[in-house]
């Protein structure tokens, strides 16, 4: 186990609402300076092993594209693209495991 710093970024094609990110089970605060299109926290510290549980959910009308990236030490360790409404209307949810 070691404390590492992550850069979390969620970018929508338009406004994303109620973005929720959890890293290793811990909630991550996100901020937006462009009206809710780009959500980011570049200084997320977590005590992690070689694998991290990642959770992300966001809301926007179905068909809204988004891209979610996790960067550690300048190296992108996770990247996923999708659109809201793929499983449930107006919502996207991902659960995944990142291997560091």
């Amino acid at each position: 186990m070691a404390i590492r710093t992550f850069d979390i970024k969620l970018v929508g094609q338009s406004q994303l609402h109620v973005p929720t990110v959890k890293l290793a089970g811990m909630g991550v605060n996100l901020w937006s300076n462009d009206g809710g299109v780009t959500w980011e926290n570049s200084k997320v510290s977590a005590d992690v092993d070689t694998k991290i549980l990642i959770y992300m959910s966001c809301e926007a009308i179905s068909g809204t594209d988004w891209e979610f990236t996790v960067t550690m030490g300048g190296r992108q360790i996770y990247n996923k693209k999708g659109e809201t409404g793929e499983l449930n209307p107006n919502v996207s949810v991902i659960h995944d495991i990142i291997n560091i």
Partner: peptide, 18 residues
Amino acid sequence: KSIKLIARHSNPDTSGNI
């Protein structure tokens, strides 16, 4: 301001209601 008027399901973050 964001409000919550209508009923939500068990997880308000994934209800699909904004």
